[in-house]
Design a binder for these strands. Structure first.
Lengths: 219, 219
DNA sequence: TTCTATTTTTAGATTAGACTAAAAATTATA
DNA sequence: TATAATTTTTAGTCTAATCTAAAAATAGAA
């Protein structure tokens, strides 16, 4: 149906549209895909011809309904496979991204229907990211970055913004995973660093950590 | 490590070496891959440079130890995924080949180690074909084609030579699957057709069917 | 053994996707 | 508003993998 390269572009644009609302620039796509802007121009012209996105020269792109559907489906597959790898094959959450990058391109509707059922139709992947449903609809969740919550508030970790092995391994070392309760004991306004409580431990985290952890605050 | 095209060539050559002992001709490869002989020549020259096979112009090719290892590993992955699809996702044995053709190219040693363990280290795929071990060694089995066995002998179906959906669906209709006991009641020398007994049913099968079914005869 | 048929290889073209370098358009600044 | 800086596009090149058409080598038949 679509080539590997096309699917990867659509996926990247989909993510960028969510991160920054509105049109997505050529440069932003190039950066997120670690490729050159000229290559991006080539590809978005091809995707525009296929009506997967709208494109006006120098004005960036926007996915069409069809483009969004294709992208969401790739993301659905990626996240379902991540659940499979963690739940069934006992991979650790920092090991699954690269493998899922490959598995997300396997073409078979039936496979995904059955995989989803086999996994019990999960709603979130191992990093806490929501899995689009079969129509490409993403469930909205009201999560905040840990960096946005105030002193003395507490929240439950529900996901990570970045999911590099390095970051995930840091979280493991600190015994933070999805479901972990975190209380903010102190917050430094100068650099955004925090003292937090996790279980019985209290420790310092930098702003960089706090702005990559999603929490849900509880009333 | 290797491209999709390279892996597919190695796999095809590996199968051809087993089917007909000795060197494999350019034409044979082209036919089995549904491509042109000139394309095959290009690719085998590249594979020869990478020392995956030995090649002398006009003389056909032979896989090196390294080439065999790579090919067997692709086949191992294909067959393990087929077991997964049938055993875990309840696919039918005639639906899994095409999907496994894609899954066999997923690159991750760890994935295959874990998948194998998850499946209980199976020795055969759903069509009765042996799964190469992690070193690329194929277990030898003494199976015969049904067409080779004599009147009044009986055997257990242990595999199929061809595994097209059409053939597998024919077998289903006749209630033949792996493990089914078959007795040859009659054999026509003119066209190789047979009357066989399967369970309480007796029926006619053509030579074409008989030469695509593997059985193990029992003493 | 010589000629013919077949098989295999070479040469040259094509396509997808990427790249570099340079041109064009847009945005920011003085 | 003119100029500088930045972003984006175009033009042309490259590689992997394929193809067609033609040439070369091998095998088979008289």
């Amino acid at each position: 149906m679509f080539t590997l390269a096309e699917e990867n572009y659509l996926k990247a644009i989909f993510h960028l549209e969510h991160e920054f609302q509105g049109e997505v620039s050529t440069n932003a796509i190039a950066e997120s895909m670690e490729t050159k802007p000229s290559s991006v121009t080539d590809m978005i012209q091809k995707l525009a011809e296929k009506k997967l996105l709208t494109y006006k020269r120098y004005k960036g792109v926007q996915l069409t309904a069809e483009g969004k559907k294709v992208a969401a489906n790739v993301i659905r597959k990626h996240r379902l496979w991540e659940v499979f790898l963690v739940e069934k094959l006992s991979f650790h959450w920092d090991q699954v991204h690269e493998i899922a990058e490959q598995l997300e391109h396997i073409q078979s509707e039936e496979l995904i229907i059955r995989l989803d059922k086999f996994l019990g139709s999960p709603e979130f992947d191992p990093h806490g990211d929501p899995i689009p449903d079969k129509h490409g609809v993403l469930k909205r969740t009201e999560k905040k970055l840990l960096s946005e919550i105030d002193k003395n508030q507490k929240g439950v970790c529900v996901g990570v913004k970045e999911s590099s092995p390095e970051f995930l391994q840091y979280l493991d070392k600190k015994k933070i995973s999805i479901g972990t309760k975190i209380r903010v004991l102190g917050k430094e306004f100068f650099d955004g660093s925090m003292i937090i409580q996790v279980g019985s431990e209290q420790f310092f985290i930098s702003h960089k950590i706090a702005e990559n952890l999603y929490v849900q605050t509880q009333e």
